[in-house]
């Protein structure tokens, strides 16, 4: 029976210090790895004889401005259909040099998902076959989903956010 514990055991046994930050929010195993080890970890989970994480569900970026040295996070979610278990892997990279290896060598579907993440967060997926903007216009010169771009006009004075608890 494959469960979160057995995956943790196996992954830690294989990678030791390279994987850390294990947690299980709402039962979904989540852990962090280094950008340099991501491919190895995903490849291990995908080709493991029992786990068989055959499906890349999602890739998403997250911006944590206060997490100095690891401001940008690239999250990928894998799903093993045979065991019906999911796992979420995070990689934190500094905003000054946000480089994460591409998963498109392992999953063809990563192509557009990573382009989307690049488009909105500026995470550079090294080795990506066609890393350019996908939803925004190509001559845009900033990454709009980063937290430094507030949604509403910051110069407005008639609307005090604190009063609305935001």
């Amino acid at each position: 029976m494959i469960n979160n514990e057995s995956i943790v055991e196996e992954v830690v046994g294989q990678f030791g210090q390279k994987v850390f930050g294990f947690e299980e929010p709402f039962g979904l195993l989540t852990f962090t790895t280094n950008a340099s080890d991501l491919i190895e970890v995903v490849d291990f989970l995908k080709n493991h004889s029992e786990f068989k994480f055959n499906f890349l569900t999602d890739v998403a970026g997250i911006h944590f401005p206060d997490n100095l040295g690891g401001e940008l996070c690239s999250m990928c979610m894998l799903h093993s259909w045979e065991n019906n278990i999911r796992v979420r892997i995070k990689v934190f990279v500094p905003i000054a040099d946000p480089k994460v290896p591409t998963l498109s060598t392992l999953f063809a579907s990563a192509n557009w998902m990573e382009r989307e993440t690049f488009d909105f967060y500026g995470i550079e997926y090294t080795g990506h076959p066609n890393l350019k903007r996908i939803l925004n216009m190509e001559d845009m010169d900033y990454f709009p989903m980063r937290k430094e771009y507030p949604l509403e006009d910051a110069t407005r004075e008639d609307k005090i956010d604190a009063l609305f608890g935001r």
Binding site: I62, S109, R166
Partner: peptide, 18 residues
């Protein structure tokens, strides 16, 4: 907080259209 910190939609059309 009162709003999501991050919300991502996994949209099937977007992924398979490639």
């Amino acid at each position: 907080g009162r709003t999501p910190y991050r919300l991502h939609f996994r949209r099937p059309s977007f992924i398979y259209y490639q």
